[in-house]
């Protein structure tokens, strides 16, 4: 168990302390964390929108040695290409998920809006996105959207990677919004009533009271979605994102080394997913606080 530094504070009141206004989660003030997530996802989106994201070309380096059951030399020769493709996949996942946690929160808040004109379409949108396959959404955004003439071209024609990031962002945003909703519902009614009794405004109630309690409850679910989105991101291969699956497909069709290539793929996913899951569990433990 890591211990919150405030708990080990000597009780003397002049000990180092957090300012009365800044809520903290695991040492990071919530407001800074929230603003950081928004800025990061917008920056990721902008970079991809402006520069199209990294596209990698793969070349034939070596053919498979047919005399062995598993050609390690082949694996070794293609490892640099594989790593470049893995990097593209990680970019897509991180960019898409950064977008998803922001979109998810916005959707969760809109869905709770007291105005039906906002909450009803939001609920419909969430159900729609959750009920349609990511692959179909990808195809729509990549092949369908550019043909909708009345949308400005800069908003409808996206690079492969940008399309994947946007699709992951909305798809997992819809799932995340459900997780946020459960987290928000888990904050006891008495907390809202205390906020009313203290005459806190809407913004302060959310930022100071509700979200700092809801988000630690949401983190395990968000972590699962992060790993799930990493596993879904290779679908981008179908719209020519040069990720690992694209690399394995194109290389296998030229070298017929399917066993080696798809084994690399599996190991690559394992090498990223396992440490990520471990780090997430540690983060969850740090962020938990003692409940009353």
């Amino acid at each position: 168990m890591s211990v919150d530094p405030r708990m080990t504070d000597p009780v003397s009141t002049d000990a180092p302390r957090t300012p009365a206004t800044g809520r903290r989660i695991g040492g990071i003030p919530v407001t800074i964390g929230g603003v950081g997530a928004v800025v990061f996802s917008l920056a990721a989106l902008f970079v991809v929108w402006r520069f199209g994201g990294g596209s990698v070309r793969f070349e034939i380096r070596e053919t498979r040695d047919p005399s062995v059951a598993f050609d390690w030399g082949f694996v070794w020769a293609y490892t640099p290409d594989f790593l470049r493709a893995l990097w593209v996949l990680i970019q897509a996942t991180v960019g898409g998920f950064a977008l998803a946690i922001v979109i998810g929160l916005v959707l969760a808040l809109l869905r709770r809006a007291p105005v039906k004109l906002l909450s009803m379409p939001t609920a419909f949108f969430i159900e729609f996105v959750r009920s349609t396959p990511l692959l179909v959404q990808l195809f729509f955004l990549f092949f369908g959207l550019p043909r909708i003439g009345w949308i400005p071209e800069s908003l409808r024609v996206w690079s492969s990677l940008a399309t994947l990031i946007i699709a992951l962002g909305f798809h997992y945003g819809a799932y995340c919004s459900e997780a946020y909703r459960a987290g928000i519902d888990s904050v006891p009614k008495g907390q809202w009533e205390a906020a009313t009794a203290l005459n806190l405004g809407t913004l302060a109630t959310w930022a100071q009271v509700v979200l700092p309690q809801a988000i630690p409850n949401v983190l395990p679910a968000l972590g699962n979605f992060l790993i799930a989105s990493f596993k879904d991101a290779p679908l981008g291969a179908s719209i020519n994102v040069t990720c690992v699956l694209f690399f394995a497909d194109t290389t296998a069709s030229r070298t017929f080394a399917s066993v080696e290539l798809y084994t690399m793929l599996g190991l690559g996913f394992l090498a990223v997913s396992l440490p990520a899951a471990f780090l997430l569990r540690r983060l969850e433990r740090r962020i938990g606080y003692e409940r009353t």
């Binding site: 009141t13 302390r17 206004t21 809520r23 205390a194 009794a197 005459n199 405004g201 009271v209 003692e290």
Partner: peptide
């Protein structure tokens, strides 16, 4: 309130200072 409804993620002094600062 009967059941206090203190904010569990804040220290005692933060609970008390919240409304004066934010409201």
């Amino acid at each position: 309130f009967q059941h206090f409804n203190l904010f569990p993620h804040m220290s005692a002094v933060e609970n008390i200072a919240l409304a004066p600062v934010k409201v």
